[in-house]
Design a protein around this nucleic acid. Structure first.
Lengths: 209, 209
DNA sequence: ATTTATATCCCCCCAAACAAGGTATTTAAT
DNA sequence: ATTAAATACCTTGTTTGGGGGGATATAAAT
């Protein structure tokens, strides 16, 4: 641990919590707090000079939210890895944070040791997450096991969802156009819809595709 | 640690590695290896009787691959959490494993301590991943910052990717059908494509949407 | 003050795609 | 022996898609 030297910035509006982290992180060899801010607006002015490797970012902030601050911070300090540190575990918030460029997502019940490890991990190109968050992220990849669709029907609906025409799907699957149409009819009938848009939406909502 | 008691099964074709894990895991209090198999076919016969809480699964197996074995194992032992343990770090393999129902994904350079922690984590509903894997998973949520598309064009291409017709998109965005058509023309021209399927593919490949 | 980018709307054309109504065969699994 | 899945064929009518040519308003940038 003696050869690492990480510059860390905090963005967190609760002063008590912020000071807690400053103490908790800054007193470790190799970890240095170079900036500490109560809002994005505050941070925006000075954070570039702090040269952070890692930014610990709260989501509930006065003014611009932590989520919306991510892309802005990335423009100000492109090399920095941003870790969200929050009490919120809502799926939508998590995915928006990750889509906006967060490198990791930790909940505030994370023990100090794990926070330090996560900072190091983020700096080395990892993606630190609380275990519960990680499972949610993983589950977002998973499909339902109770799809009414057969494997072939699922495959064809997936192709439709890529915007391909029935003709093109037929060619790529080496089957007749009429066969594709038959499958689609069966899909619509099983899902009780009358258009591809509705079929795609229903299938995605239920994780059939 | 004295109150946990985890039943673990291994599926791994390399005997030396398998015995290594048996030793490495089984000698810890609370961790018990109840089954150890060289292939899915082998495991299928007896694994239900081993009552595993966690299954460590290799991807390269003789016969049915580890990836394809995941849903089958989940049918045999629905309560078990499956952790992939492999040398492969290819994006496609990882996403297929997670889509098939894996609870976690570890690379074989994972230190013993982390493997034990991951087993516990999986059993408690977490999603253990190697840090590099986690970053890849997180990156799959992220968009490119250099899209040639304007926000409105991006929005419309997203709608197209849901299978909606131009007319429906116009209605939902409260703009004229002709406006939608104009945007699409501009999108095609910017992306140098001539169909929605190509536009969607190119945009997804480049993470514009 | 004047380009430039973005978003909006309008017209034409025509081939292609889509949705719904049937029926029917082959293969594999129970 | 039945069923489920995948395959293929036919008809009918409507909608959509892609390409072509424009125009206008607004806001941001120079």
């Amino acid at each position: 641990m003696q050869d690492l030297n990480i510059n860390i910035c905090l963005v967190e509006d609760d002063e008590t919590i912020r000071e807690g982290y400053e103490y908790l992180i800054g007193n470790n060899e190799g970890y240095k707090i170079t900036g500490s801010f109560a809002s994005y607006e505050d941070a925006a002015k000075k954070i570039a000079k702090c040269d952070p490797d890692v930014i610990l970012l709260d989501v509930e902030l006065p003014g611009i939210s932590g989520i919306d601050a991510i892309p802005k911070l990335k423009k100000l300090v492109p090399e920095a890895h941003i870790i969200i540190l929050t009490v919120y575990e809502q799926e939508l918030l998590i995915f928006r944070a990750l889509a906006n460029g967060a490198a990791g997502y930790l909940t505030k019940d994370t023990p100090p040791k794990k926070i330090l490890a996560s900072i190091k991990e983020a700096m080395e190109g990892g993606g630190p997450m609380s275990s519960h968050i990680a499972r949610m992220v993983i589950q977002s990849f998973q499909r339902s096991e109770e799809s009414p669709l057969t494997p072939r029907e699922t495959e064809i609906l997936e192709q439709i969802a890529t915007g391909k025409s029935r003709k093109r799907i037929a060619e790529e699957l080496f089957i007749d156009l009429e066969t594709v149409k038959s499958h689609i009819k069966n899909i619509y009938s099983k899902l009780n819809v009358h258009s591809k848009a509705d079929a795609i939406k229903l299938a995605k909502d239920n994780k059939f595709i």
